[in-house]
Design a protein around this nucleic acid. Structure first.
Lengths: 204, 204
DNA sequence: AGGTCATGTGGACGGTGACAACATCAAGTT
DNA sequence: AACTTGATGTTGTCACCGTCCACATGACCT
């Protein structure tokens, strides 16, 4: 049995993170109240301090969890795109990455915010090209280069372009002037956004 | 004399908003603490409750102030672009709008965040096409259409595309994986981003 | 059996947003 | 000139929060 620990509580750390994540889902970052997390876990306040030095560190753990979910969503959507010539596959995959990102952000606004809207920002992927959502995007862009759809020159900085576009789109719908837009009215603008990025990166 | 009032304090409301804005500049939204705002204004805590029902309402006032500053920055940058044929003028103006937006966000992160990163989001411009930064962008896009650089079809939704791009860019540099990027290393990616949007919207 | 250290508890402190009761002062009415 | 009124600011209080401290507990090692 590779159970980490069956001490007083039996893996309290994970229980705390899950409770915190539930709270984050329901009420966003500011709703993640240490004492409420403890209450929900059936443990005294302060118990969390044996596993996290800080409230912030607990939030960091939730953020990491959120990043994992986001990455999973991206990967599962990418995987649905197969067959056809490498160029169109890569382009459709880039599109799926964007859709996955926005869909996740709008479906799980609380988690998404925790991952980003921190007082002191936290590591998303230390080395941008390594793992995490950022890494997934990078690999798809590399595919695009390999397929000859994207020039080496434009490849540099393309991560930022793509990420900024979908991140901004999500943010505008979460906090910006477009909050409250019904889902079916979001699709067309998102389509135009993804078209624009595709055209702008790969044309001419 | 059109002084609004010289009552007990003499226009306390404005003094509070300014103190709150200073605090926001220095420490972001969460740093705007009602009691500290009152302290800095030399007034008791609770005094603010005569002018704002809520902490949130004070933050809303700061947000409105931030939006005004942002709009000013955009307009002043747009005004520098003159002469030449209408098409290139409009395109350069669109670019300047983007640069103004990102520059403001990164120069005044505290104010920028207050304008956006609210718990319960607030009005940026009730009617997207009216006033505020969103309206400025809309007018430049209309110029682009008038100059024949942007089709009517793509005009619809172009607001969202442009706004999302620069907003996302700013956010990634404030809270995302790109925070801490030195200013001179931000210029090239921003250039590519603006190029991409321009190409994507106006080409083919 | 005894010791040790990680883990969880209870209590306290300073700080915060909000509410309620009170004090004050400008302005209008009589 | 005295009274009333309503907006403005203050004092006092409450519940809640994050964090620190001293203490209790129990698993594991020798």
């Amino acid at each position: 049995m590779a159970v980490v620990s069956t001490y007083h509580h039996g893996n309290l750390r994970m229980a705390l993170v899950e409770a915190a994540a539930d709270l984050a889902r329901a009420t966003g970052p500011n709703g993640v109240v240490l004492r409420e997390v403890a209450r929900r876990t059936g443990v005294s306040h302060n118990a969390a301090y044996r596993h996290f030095t800080d409230r912030q560190e607990l939030l960091d753990a939730v953020a990491a969890l959120a990043m994992d979910r986001l990455e999973e969503a991206m990967l599962s959507r990418i995987a649905t795109v197969t067959g056809g010539d490498p160029g169109t596959v890569a382009r459709r995959r880039l599109r799926e990455v964007g859709v996955a990102y926005v869909t996740f952000a709008l479906a799980e606004p609380g988690l998404f915010e925790v991952a980003f809207a921190a007082d002191e920002p936290r590591p998303m992927a230390p080395e941008p090209s390594k793992g995490g959502p950022y890494g997934v995007l990078g690999r798809v862009l590399d595919e695009l280069v390999a397929a000859g759809e994207l020039t080496e020159k434009r490849r540099q900085g393309a991560d930022v372009v793509c990420w900024a576009a979908v991140h901004g789109f999500a943010m505008l719908h979460l906090h910006g002037p477009l909050r409250g837009t019904p889902p079916d009215l979001r699709e067309a603008p998102l389509g135009l956004l993804l078209d624009t990025v595709d055209r702008g990166l790969t044309h001419q």
